[in-house]
Design a binder for these strands. Structure first.
Lengths: 113, 113
DNA sequence: CTTTAATTGTAATTAAACTACAAATCATGT
DNA sequence: ACATGATTTGTAGTTTAATTACAATTAAAG
């Protein structure tokens, strides 16, 4: 074993894809690139409260997690289908809640096995 | 349909987790947070050619993709096990190549179905 | 054509990342 | 112990990215 042993929970630091995504938060530039939505527009949506950024004292710039990026992509699709921004955001919010609660049930069931 | 229809490949902009990860590239700050390895150290590893950053003319700062982040985590583990930096990096490189070629075979097989 | 929604532009500022040094620490051999 | 190369860490000064706080367009609906 070498020196300080930095941050050793060793055994498995190795993240699977899902773990990785739950840990990940990315900046607005990256989100703009991934989604094709301009930074300016993302800021506007966030100012209006339609999407939310990670809230943490150390972080001073806008950061988004995976769920939020999915939301953004869904909103974009709905906009293209003709929904208003608000309607799109609401619809996505509801869809997300459904998926979320279904996932929690599943998770819960798994944990008992 | 509304206005400009921004960047419409519609149908499925919806990314699954794997798609998302292949598109994603993240900055050094985020990588440092995820991996627990200081930015300074990541820069050093990159300078020595042990890890590589995304290479694109528009990008001026260090960006890493998912594979590279996995590499970083593996290197970290091996360092804690007592390997030299270079030995760790080599070992990881080989491991990655194996996984990669196995994956390609699998992918190839799937595509034919 | 007026009003509200939504997007876009931009100057000035703050935060994050970069480079290019140098110093400190660690591992190994003599 | 000392020297040596490997690795990590520190930092001043600079560049790039993101933010705010305005304002101006453009689009959709009555």
């Amino acid at each position: 074993m070498t020196k300080k042993s930095q941050n050793n929970q060793s055994a498995s630091l190795i993240l699977d894809e899902h773990d990785f995504l739950t840990k990940l938060i990315v900046g607005i530039g990256e989100v703009a690139e991934i989604t094709g939505i301009p930074q300016r527009q993302l800021r506007y949506w966030q100012e209006k409260g339609l999407i939310k950024t990670v809230d943490s004292p150390e972080i001073t710039t806008r950061r988004f997690n995976y769920l939020e990026i999915k939301k953004i992509l869904l909103i974009k699709e709905l906009l293209d289908e003709g929904f208003t921004l608000e309607a799109a955001a609401n619809k996505v919010e509801k869809r997300m809640e459904l998926i979320n609660s279904a996932f929690k049930k599943f998770k819960n069931r798994q944990d008992k096995v």
